[in-house]
C-alpha cells in the first residue's frame, strides 16, 4: 500500500537540505554589521552601521561597479537580439543542422567557464587583440545568448501558429505582425530572459578574469578582496549589493513566467 504522505525521515532530510542551501547566505548580512574587521569572529563582538558609510566613500569600489553595470547592460542587449533571432528561427521551422545549432548555443554554458575563458584568451593572443571593455562584453554576450534563447523558445512553443496566420489573413505584413502580435506575446519571456542574462553577467567572474586584462569588474574586485582582505566588512557590504543584483532579477523573472508551463531559470 503506498501512501501519499512522506515519511518523517524524508521530510526532515528535504527540509534540512533546503536550509543547507539558504542559511549560509544569511551570514553575509550579519557580518556586514560586525565591529571586528581583522577576522571572521563568531559571534560578532558588536554591531555597527559604519561599514555602509565606509563602503560608500571608498573610491576603489565605484569604477568596478560602473564597469560591471556597463558590461552587463550591453551584453544583455546583444544577447536579447541574438537570442530572440535564433529562437524565432528554431521555433518556426525544421531544417538541416537544427540539432547542431542548439548544441552550439548550449555549449558556452555547458563547458566549464575556465575553458570558455581560456579559449577567448588564446584567441585574443593569437590575433593580438588588446584587452578592453569590449573583450569582456564579447565573452559575456556569448554565454548570455543561451539564457535568452531558453526563455524565448519556451514561449514560442506555447504560442500557437494560428495567431500569426490570423494576423496575416487580416492584412498585416510581417513587421506589423511582429510589432502588434508577436512582441506583446513574447514580451514577458524576453524581459525574464534579459533579467537573468543581466544577473549572470553582473556576477560572472571565471570567464572575466581571462578577458579583462588590468580592469576590474565588481566580482573581480571582490575576488581580490577575498584573496587579500582589508576592511573585511566592506567586502560584505559589496557582497550584499551583488547578491541583490542577482537575487531580485531571478525573483522578478519567476513572477513574470510562472503562469506558463515553462518557468524561467531552470537552465542556468
Amino acid at each position: 500500500m503506498h501512501s501519499d504522505r512522506a515519511s518523517l525521515g524524508l521530510r526532515i532530510a528535504a527540509l534540512a537540505g533546503l536550509l543547507f542551501l539558504h542559511l549560509p547566505i544569511l551570514l553575509i548580512f550579519l557580518y556586514a554589521f560586525t565591529t571586528e574587521e581583522k577576522s571572521y569572529q563568531f559571534p560578532p563582538p558588536g554591531l555597527t552601521l559604519e561599514w555602509f558609510a565606509v563602503a560608500w566613500h571608498r573610491a576603489d569600489i565605484w569604477p568596478p561597479l560602473w564597469l560591471s553595470v556597463q558590461v552587463a547592460t550591453i551584453a544583455t542587449v546583444l544577447a536579447l537580439i541574438l537570442g530572440t533571432l535564433v529562437s524565432a528561427a528554431m521555433a518556426q521551422s525544421r531544417f538541416f543542422g537544427r540539432e547542431q545549432i542548439s548544441l552550439l548555443i548550449l555549449l558556452p554554458i555547458a563547458l566549464p567557464g575556465v575553458i570558455t575563458g581560456m579559449a577567448l584568451r588564446s584567441a585574443f593572443s593569437v590575433m593580438d587583440i588588446p584587452y578592453s571593455v569590449w573583450t569582456i562584453i564579447l565573452g559575456h554576450a556569448t554565454f548570455c545568448i543561451v539564457i535568452v534563447y531558453n526563455n524565448a523558445v519556451a514561449r514560442f512553443r506555447r504560442l500557437s501558429g494560428g495567431i500569426l496566420e490570423a494576423s496575416a489573413d487580416l492584412g498585416a505584413n510581417a513587421f506589423q505582425t511582429f510589432r502588434h502580435v508577436l512582441l506583446p506575446n513574447l514580451g514577458s519571456a524576453l524581459l525574464a530572459g534579459g533579467m537573468l542574462a543581466f544577473a549572470l553577467s553582473f556576477d560572472e567572474v571565471i570567464v572575466t578574469t581571462f578577458t579583462a586584462g588590468q580592469q576590474s569588474t565588481l566580482p573581480i574586485w571582490m575576488l581580490q578582496e577575498l584573496v587579500r582582505p582589508r576592511q573585511r566588512p566592506v567586502t560584505n557590504v559589496v557582497a550584499i549589493v551583488v547578491f541583490a543584483a542577482t537575487f531580485l532579477p531571478i525573483l522578478i523573472a519567476y513572477y513574470l513566467t510562472r503562469s506558463g508551463s515553462e518557468t524561467a531559470g531552470a537552465g542556468k
Binding site: L226, V242, F243, G265
Partner: peptide, 10 residues
C-alpha cells in the same frame, strides 16, 4: 532556484 542564481562569489 534562488541559490542556483544568486551570486557565485557571494
Amino acid at each position: 532556484m534562488l541559490p542556483l542564481w544568486s551570486s557565485y562569489l557571494v
